[in-house]
Design a protein around this nucleic acid. Sequence first.
DNA 1: CTACTGTACAACTAAATCGTTGCAGAGAGT
DNA 2: ACTCTCTGCAACGATTTAGTTGTACAGTAG
Lengths: 114, 114
Amino acid sequence: MQSLPHPIPDDLAELIARRFRAIGEPMRVRILDLLRDGELSVNVLAEQLGAGQQNVSKHLSVLAETGIVARRKEGNHVYYRVVDEGVFALCEQVCGSLQSQLSTLAALVGGLPT
Amino acid sequence: MQSLPHPIPDDLAELIARRFRAIGEPMRVRILDLLRDGELSVNVLAEQLGAGQQNVSKHLSVLAETGIVARRKEGNHVYYRVVDEGVFALCEQVCGSLQSQLSTLAALVGGLPT
DNA sequence: CTACTGTACAACTAAATCGTTGCAGAGAGT
DNA sequence: ACTCTCTGCAACGATTTAGTTGTACAGTAG
């Protein structure tokens, strides 16, 4: 079913970690969220994020190098889109974990002895 | 279906990024892999990883703070186990993405024009 | 051709992070 | 009580990374 070899070879661990690190940045998470509806140009992204163009461009480079997004140049603008749809599944999975953690905590607070 | 609000609030982006960053480290990926079969003590982990005990302990702290693993103390040893089984799903998802990337590249190489 | 817009690259500063070293505390055995 | 093992905390140096600033290049408009 799952093809993960069991002592994970170091190279694979490195690859996996690299991908997680690519998403492990608030700005990049927000970029991916904005790209959920479709491709956007750098300046629109920067505007919506309230961040500098160069900064956004750099983050997009990181995501592009990892193969999560792709660029398409048209005239004066460059449009980025998500090519690895799996990232959305990742985010939802993480949100699920966060929610169960929170509900566990909530249950603890609710069930406090006097 | 998916409960992600659409402009993601900054706080949530921060939380999601934090979790990804927690797994975005080769050593921690390997630790999680070793913990797949069940709980292990710090010294056993350090031994299997070929890393220093303090180093492993620190990485375990990061994973514990994020709520991915939990500690259980028994006598002289401390055993760690994975409490958020979702991380395995995350890793498999990432591996799937890596594989499709590789196969795409392989297809490109194979389809090279003379 | 010149001016303007949109984007990426390079250099710099500041901050976060990894790994190591040294030390302190807890538990088990003699 | 003394010692040994296992573990976590604090501090240090070295590497990495984020964000800003300046600049260069491509495409568009006048």
